[in-house]
């Protein structure tokens, strides 16, 4: 399979195999007009298999969301065919409007335009809790 190299755009690389579709959906890339390629199960020396997302546009992507879904992913910015920036991600300390609190008793269930904010409660377990009601994400 051959996907052309992009001239100006974003490549999300080193995504855990099988997570590419989910990440694409959470980033809203499945409902944009941008040219997006999801390449699944690519051979990788480091990871065995990996997924890659290529976006043929210098659009901004939510790094916190990518870090939340897969902290091992990398984000490469390509300009005029040249790699100009390579970002390695980490599990973010705070998530703002990345995931929603599912607790029906939480103030986020009724307060207009209140951002859904989660804090990293346990880094080892990658466990997040809503800052308002302490409910665990997921």
């Amino acid at each position: 399979m051959n996907i052309d190299a992009i001239q100006n755009g974003v490549v999300i690389d080193h995504i855990k195999a099988g997570s590419g579709m989910k990440l694409c959906s959470l980033l809203g890339l499945d409902s944009t007009d941008l040219s997006v390629a999801i390449i699944r199960n690519v051979n990788s020396r480091k990871m065995g298999k990996k997924d890659i997302i290529k976006i043929d546009s210098l659009t901004s992507v939510n790094l916190d969301l990518i870090g939340y879904v897969d902290p091992g992913a990398t984000v490469n910015i390509i300009r005029d065919g040249v790699l100009v920036k390579k970002l390695t991600l980490d599990t973010p300390d705070r998530l703002v409007n990345v995931i929603k609190c599912k607790n029906p008793r939480c103030i986020t269930s009724c307060e207009q335009e209140l951002p859904h904010v989660f804090r990293l409660a346990d880094r080892a377990k990658r466990e997040y809790r809503c800052i308002y009601c302490e409910t665990r994400a997921g």
């Binding site: 607790n103 008793r105 939480c106 103030i107 986020t108 209140l114 809503c130 308002y132 009601c133 302490e134």
Partner: peptide
Amino acid sequence: PKEGAALVAAMNSSVPVINAGDGGH
């Protein structure tokens, strides 16, 4: 009655807020 309501109030108030109970929280 909603959990976290007092925190939202404190984030938007210009005076101190005391939580006198926010749901079961």
